[in-house]
Design a binder for these strands. Structure first.
Lengths: 152, 152
DNA sequence: TCGCAATTGCTATCAGATCGCAATTGTGCG
DNA sequence: CGCACAATTGCGATCTGATAGCAATTGCGA
């Protein structure tokens, strides 16, 4: 559970994936800047949920001049393109992760721990929201709060 | 949709309800101050989700000196006592409402509109979270985000 | 009625996030 | 291959929502 654990190596598949994303960016009139590339690297390089601040720190390890606001702007852009999802956990900053890593979030309102859960948990909720209200739920972008097993 | 609409009259039942809450507060060593009473009045007086700021404005209509921080402190206290729930909609400030008015929230991430939905929509999710993870979900304290019917 | 802890008003401060602007830099087009 | 120009960046100022510290006030149990 230590914050900086699992700094999983960038695998060669990631590089292609990053370039794929960048070509999507280009298709939308965007550019492949070093900061953007580095940010994507950080996003691909870790399974954890990262705040903008944490991602900035990771980017800065390679390019110390990249500014926090740049990271925010890029995250916003990448979210607009559907590449990343942001999730507001109950307290603290928003966290960001690749949109492809599909999962919901259970956040304990006592101890703050977060459990990732598969999408199918939301199947029923998604279905009834659609049929009853015509509302299409995106289960990745919010946190479900309550009490975790050890905090009952 | 105008912000100040529906300023539903304080009904005589509300007064008793407010005093009931205050006696609970007293049982926990708290006091029945004017600010507290006014805040409860505001909470009872409206079905809408209100931010701390909005509630403060309402309280100030009767007692102009009540400070924003006082309202925050009281909301925190009342939430601790289980009288109110707070919900973080996707953006903007947290909103507060009486815990008794049980419902979940669907928030459109495009137009920002909010739909209140009955608890039973969450039945399945609540059940599988409990059986699979021992996690007890409180459906009132978070917002489910997605696209509303008119924003597909 | 009295004493004391709970509460308040106020200001300062916090964290997270956004904005404006001049300088820089990708990149599509010729 | 090189240019023009829009996209992007660094940086600081600024914004909003929320909290903390502290002295003065005030409910309320005994």
């Amino acid at each position: 559970m230590s914050p900086g654990s699992q700094p999983r190596q960038i695998e060669h598949g990631d590089h292609d994936a990053i370039e794929d994303v960048l070509s999507i960016v280009r298709q939308h009139g965007g550019r492949a800047t070093p900061a953007r590339r580095l940010l994507l690297q950080a996003l691909f390089g870790s399974r954890e949920h990262r705040s903008a601040e944490e991602l900035t720190a990771e980017v800065r390890a390679h390019a110390p001049d990249v500014h926090l606001s740049t990271v925010y702007r890029n995250l916003e852009e990448l979210e607009r393109l559907g590449v990343v999802d942001s999730t507001r956990l109950r307290d603290g900053p928003a966290t960001y992760h690749l949109a492809s890593t599909a999962h919901g979030h259970l956040v304990c309102e006592k101890c703050g721990s977060m459990t990732e859960v598969p999408d199918d948990m939301f199947r029923d909720l998604v279905r009834s929201a659609r049929t009853r209200y015509g509302f299409i739920i995106n289960p990745h972008r919010f946190a479900v709060t309550g009490r975790c097993a050890s905090c009952q």
